[in-house]
Amino acid sequence: MELRELNYITAIGKTRHMTHAANELYISQPALYKSLRKIEAEFGTPLFYRKGNELLPTDTGEIVLEKAGEISALIAQMNDAVAATKHLKQGKVRIGFPSIVGTMYLPNLLIQFQQKYPGISLNTVEAGGNALAEMVVSGDVDMAIIMRPVYSELLNEIPLIKNQIVAGIKPSHPWNNKSFVTIKDFEETPFITFDKTFNVRAQLDKHFRANNVHPNIAFEGASCQFLFELADLSGKIIVLPKPMIEFYAKEEIKILPFKPAFPWELSLIFQKNSFLSTASKALINHIQEYVFTHYQ
């Protein structure tokens, strides 16, 4: 049975009259009668019987009308849900990010998004950059914000924030007279940085290997607050992205850029050549607008 034919049965059951049902459906009475006979032939039993001037449902007709009503209600719900999704009144989107990036950049961004689209369910996942890239590829999250470079050919990326990795020192440090640092400066000088679960550390190690430098890493960790406490108590150099030093430093700290510059960039990644929900597209647009307004 086609949906159109289901509507015919519903109209007959509602009006209890062939002519009235035909008028309501904007078809001729003979066409409606022919369709009814076809439907009854498919079921192998009559759906209506005549009583006076009325067409009343048989036992089978009662069942068909009941189920037709349920189907019509489901279709109406589906249409309402599609319209709501289309107009961003409902939906779901999952975004991943490293916890430090989330702390620094995302609270206001995500709150503003939910205020703008209160019907959209926003789920967040915190993990390292490599793990997040794998989650996006597998579909476990819809998108993620991670440090460049992005190595997977299965992912699209939108550059968001550009800055650099730098060294931070106390004014009393012997390097206070320097205006920049080089990779080779860290052959013997102890410093503090992220552990190997971070892309920042992976890029640092890559530069050290390329320059045949064996770095003297005094402390490493995953928490900026922990690393800054260590730097504060030990007086040692801290090597992190510049925005993180500016965000977490509790006291005056001198920033020394690398020469040549050591870039640190964040990108928004999502699957290449795949479907993006309306909610996901809305979040991508919101992120781009927010970053352009606040960080460009």
Rank of each mutant, 00 (worst) to 15 (best):
T189C: 08
T278P: 03
V137Y: 06
G69K: 12
K254N: 13
Q288P: 02
I237D: 01
T85H: 04
E134M: 02
K206W: 06
T19S: 13
N108W: 00
S121D: 13
H20Q: 15
K170L: 14
A68P: 04
G139E: 04
S121Q: 14
N273L: 12
A21M: 11
V213E: 03
I39E: 08
C224F: 13
T124F: 08
T278W: 03
K89Q: 14
R148E: 14
A131P: 00
Y8A: 04
I158Q: 07
T45E: 15
G52N: 14
M147L: 04
D80S: 13
L276Y: 10
E229V: 11
Y49E: 15
Y33M: 14
L155W: 03
M147V: 10
D59C: 07
N163A: 13
V213W: 00
L25P: 07
D140G: 11
I158N: 05
K196S: 12
H294E: 09
V239F: 02
N273K: 10
W264R: 00
V64Y: 07
I287W: 02
G44V: 10
D80M: 12
K67A: 02
N216W: 02
E246V: 11
I12C: 10
N163S: 15
Y117K: 05
D80G: 03
T85C: 07
Y151P: 00
K272M: 11
F270C: 01
L6W: 10
A31W: 11
I269F: 03
A41P: 02
K89A: 10
L233C: 13
D232T: 14
P215E: 02
A131H: 01
F258I: 06
V141S: 01
P263N: 01
V93Y: 06
E289Q: 09
E54M: 15
A127P: 00
K51N: 14
E126R: 10
G119N: 11
I161A: 05
K196N: 14
W264S: 12
Q112I: 00
T15M: 15
N176W: 05
S138D: 11
Q296L: 10
G44R: 08
D185T: 12
F186P: 01
A144R: 03
L55H: 15
S99Q: 07
L227A: 05
A210F: 04
A84S: 12
L109S: 08
P174N: 09
L25E: 06
I63M: 10
T124H: 05
I255A: 05
L3H: 08
A218N: 05
L6V: 09
E251Q: 15
T182I: 05
A41D: 14
H173P: 05
F258R: 05
I145K: 00
E62G: 07
Q114N: 13
Y290Q: 02
Y290K: 03
N177A: 12
N23W: 12
G128D: 00
N156M: 11
N177H: 14
P260S: 03
K281N: 08
I27E: 13
E42F: 13
M104N: 03
R50A: 15
M104T: 03
K259R: 11
K259W: 06
Q271C: 07
N156L: 10
N211R: 09
A231H: 08
F292C: 06
I237R: 03
P30W: 14
I192N: 01
E54R: 15
E157C: 09
A41Q: 14
L230V: 12
V291N: 00
T293R: 11
I161L: 08
L106A: 09
K14Y: 13
Q271S: 14
